[in-house]
Amino acid sequence: MRRAVLTYLALGIGAILILAPYLMSVQTSVKTPRQFAQQPPLAPPRPPTGANYAELVVGGHTLIPPLVVTVQVVVVVVIGQLTCSVLAAYAFARLDFPGRDAIFWVYLATLMVPVAAVLVPRFVLLSETGLSNTFWGIVLPSMFGSPYAIFLLRQFFRAVPQELLDAARIDGAGHPGVLRHVILPLSRPILATLLIITAVTHWNDFLWPLVITSGARWQVLTVAVAGLQSQYQGNWTLVMAATTLATMPLLVLFVLFQKHIVRSITITGMK
């Protein structure tokens, strides 16, 4: 009994610590700039206002175009990454060709190179080919798989029992058939995990879209939200409403894939 109380107490404190920042941003988002400036941050909004949200949806600071761009970026990157990573991981895990392991380890080593280090070379490369400030400029560098995804899938594919694959081969399946009828159905949880990780990473990606695009046309959500703040003008109520809106789709994604996420944590051991 006492143990249960302590457990709940610890969990409760943890939950408060994690949720408080979000709750605070939500409550700030329903304040007017005047309320925000005059009262302490924890004072409840009285009366709450929807003006910030209205401004972001139908007003002068509409986030709809950046939202559409972001959704397109995420969809293209997720589909591209999943397709390419599955194919590459299958080759690394199940095909025999000379230099396989060497190529894999070199590719994996790129995980260790921080994004900031390749930012400028990548930017120069893409702008030389005329892709700066285009949709393809945003998605191309990340739509052909990532070392992390390939590593994760390779390890998973290697754990599939060889007997299953052999049985499929005896029944006349080629590599595409094996991949499609044996490996993929068995890999649903890991694919769901990857989908979520990739979607969240690219939904939140800020630095690359900021650098490669200029102007309103290809602005993604993160860049548009950052643009609400200026040197001397914090616009905090508007920014809080914008971040609340920007997190919403991720919450929906979480609810939809909740089971998979929990399972994926046990698979990958990641938090």
Partner: peptide, 25 residues
Amino acid sequence: VQVQVVPWADYWTKLPADVAAGTAA
């Protein structure tokens, strides 16, 4: 004339890259 707003917090990060690559406004 096309007006581009780059957030103040990142203005001086983005400008050198753009000037170097010849893609500045």
